[in-house]
């Protein structure tokens, strides 16, 4: 029985030592190993709607030939809140009926020629803001200036074109907007042997989707 106190005296440090033995590493640098639960961090993708795609229709006035309906597609990318780039394809018909009254045979092989144009333009939102419809609705809008270069395919030949214009865009929601656009296309035509600088005015309205 006398050995019992001695044994109990040893028992306590021995037991205490057992608490530490699992924690002390070979190089004795860390006394306690922390138990930290590993968290799974998932970085969510934030959706964006900088790319726009739209349809438009309107009137296209070919200088010397008259005005006709135009329709086309629009694809664009908004780079910053002020600057955006847009590529447009449009198609219209040109008629030389007025010339056929005076000039037998007309100018074109057929009375109606198709005019197609492609252009790439850079736009600047000069007047962004909000428009108010009635008392309770406010829609984000922007008046922009746009200018670019492109090609007009007409009368079997490609004509380099510069276009300058202005327009207004009203956002009905984040993903859809109505757009009204007025453009002037500057190109040089050589239809009757003499090169002439022409201006084709275009006025369109369209719907654009953002995604």
């Amino acid at each position: 029985m006398r050995s019992l106190p001695f044994a109990s005296a040893l028992f306590v440090p021995a037991l205490a030592g057992m608490f530490f033995v699992g924690a002390v590493r070979a190089d004795d640098t860390q006394v306690i190993e922390p138990e930290v639960a590993r968290r799974d961090v998932q970085v969510t993708h934030i959706p964006s709607n900088d790319v726009e795609m739209g349809l438009f229709t309107g009137t296209y006035d070919t200088q010397n030939f008259g005005t006709n309906l135009v329709g086309g597609l629009r694809l664009g990318y908004h780079i910053t809140e002020d600057v955006f780039a847009e590529a447009v394809y449009g198609q219209t018909k040109v008629s030389d009926q007025d010339f056929r009254l005076i000039l037998p045979g007309g100018i074109f092989p057929q009375p109606h020629e198709t005019l197609r144009y492609y252009d790439v333009s850079a736009g600047y939102n000069v007047l962004p803001g909000e428009v108010f419809i009635g008392r309770t609705h406010a829609k984000v809008s922007a008046v922009y200036l746009i200018g670019g270069v492109g090609i007009t395919k007409f009368d079997g030949a490609n004509h380099e074109t510069v276009n300058v214009g202005t327009g207004m865009r009203v956002f009905l929601a984040d993903w859809v907007s109505l757009q009204v656009d007025a453009r002037d296309h500057f190109l040089s035509l050589n239809l009757l042997g003499q090169r002439q600088e022409t201006q084709n005015l275009e006025l369109t309205a369209g719907v654009t989707f953002f995604f």
């Binding site: 934030i46 959706p47 964006s48 962004p128 984040d174």
Partner: peptide
């Protein structure tokens, strides 16, 4: 240029819905 109608204070949580530019 759009007006500020709201502020979110420190430690408040915001849910990001969409990004435009």
């Amino acid at each position: 240029g759009f007006p500020i109608t709201n502020v979110a204070k420190k430690t408040e949580w915001l849910v990001i819905e969409i990004r435009h530019t």
